[in-house]
Design a protein around this nucleic acid. Structure first.
Lengths: 192, 192
DNA sequence: GTAGATACGGAACGCACGTAACGTATATGG
DNA sequence: CCATATACGTTACGTGCGTTCCGTATCTAC
């Protein structure tokens, strides 16, 4: 049963996405107003809000759709893989528009539905990729088989979000390495 | 050299704080508008903004000033102390107004100065109290003396913020215990 | 082909944060 | 006493998010 009524115009979605990307690149999140998006996309505001419930949701949808998947590292050791992946995460958090991310955090905190979308579309897929990395390490006997990979990875991601976004700490390779060390003790097979 | 010009009226600060507390308790952060605060406190908006640069800052200042210091646990073991402290933290994060916290996170993310205030006035003092707890454990030989207590505590706090506020996960005693376990491996003296 | 449902654009609105302009009040320093 | 600096209240404003109303357009179902 196809949906009733007049269907949405897919061309509008494309124009909206293009407008968001262009305006975001030009002047950043602060200067990105919903009216500016509507104007640049030649779209009415109601049409915009029919597709995206909030500014945070609009930007997330567009950016998440264009964002390429994370690179899955394979250095030969869990420590190396985690170091690489987390340095990429740190670089990402450091490069991103803080006003945009701040707005996103606020929305996630107070809007469980939006938070669920972010999880399903970004957090969880990336985490599963890293779960595979950990399981590889288990397979080659480097990591104890009873490891809770998802908990371990959330521990790592969570503290980096906290340190970088909330505490404004710079996390260089050394800090990441120390973090990985703390996380891997008790998980490596040889360390007992 | 006393400050030039007419001094601020301290009575206004008190009335503002009282108004924020009352309105917040009555209808929550969403319903708390700056105009409502000004009206309830019998204060003009400019007077309000002379004291507090933003709504988030206003609420933080008032709440932080009234918030009582955390209870420092002393169960006899680090694991027990951490469990108790973190369960208190979890309860706090679970009980707090999510719209208010979300706004606070956004402000912290994009405003380093505000983030610094929150750190100095809340995060760091509480962390130092827990550092003392860890150092007590070191003193009685329970914890290795080369432990980085602050890093350890930030690891714990960070992941709880991430899980509770951003992932909307319920963290019960079991989850907290598992988290404490992961953090303490490699730190306890007898575990080598 | 007609009815019902939904989309579109245009325009206006409500709301709330944060500022600005103005006159008045209260402090310090000479 | 007078100049200067800051606070206070009133009022009005600018900006931007999100909504609503309305007339028109485009689908499906019967």
């Amino acid at each position: 049963m196809p949906p009733r009524g007049r269907p949405r115009d897919a061309a509008l979605d494309e124009r909206i996405a293009a407008a968001v990307v262009a305006l975001l690149a030009a002047d950043g999140y602060e200067a990105l107003t919903m009216e500016a998006v509507a104007a640049a996309a030649n779209v009415s505001k109601p049409a915009l809000y029919r597709r995206h419930a909030s500014k945070a949701s609009l930007v997330f949808s567009v950016v998440a759709a264009r964002g390429e998947a994370m690179a899955v590292p394979d250095t030969g050791t869990v420590a190396g893989d985690l170091q690489l992946a987390l340095e990429g995460f740190v670089a990402f958090l450091g490069a991103v528009d803080r006003a945009a991310v701040g707005d996103g955090l606020a929305q996630m905190t107070s809007d469980a539905e939006f938070a669920g979308r972010v999880q399903r579309e970004v957090f969880d897929p990336d985490r599963e990729r890293m779960v595979a990395v950990v399981e590889r390490a288990v397979a080659r006997g480097e990591v104890r088989p009873d490891v809770d990979a998802r908990a371990l990875l959330d521990d790592l991601a969570g503290v980096l979000v906290y340190r970088i976004l909330l505490r404004h700490e710079v996390q260089g390779p050394a800090e990441v390495a120390a973090l990985v060390d703390r996380a891997l003790v008790g998980v490596l097979a040889d360390a007992r």
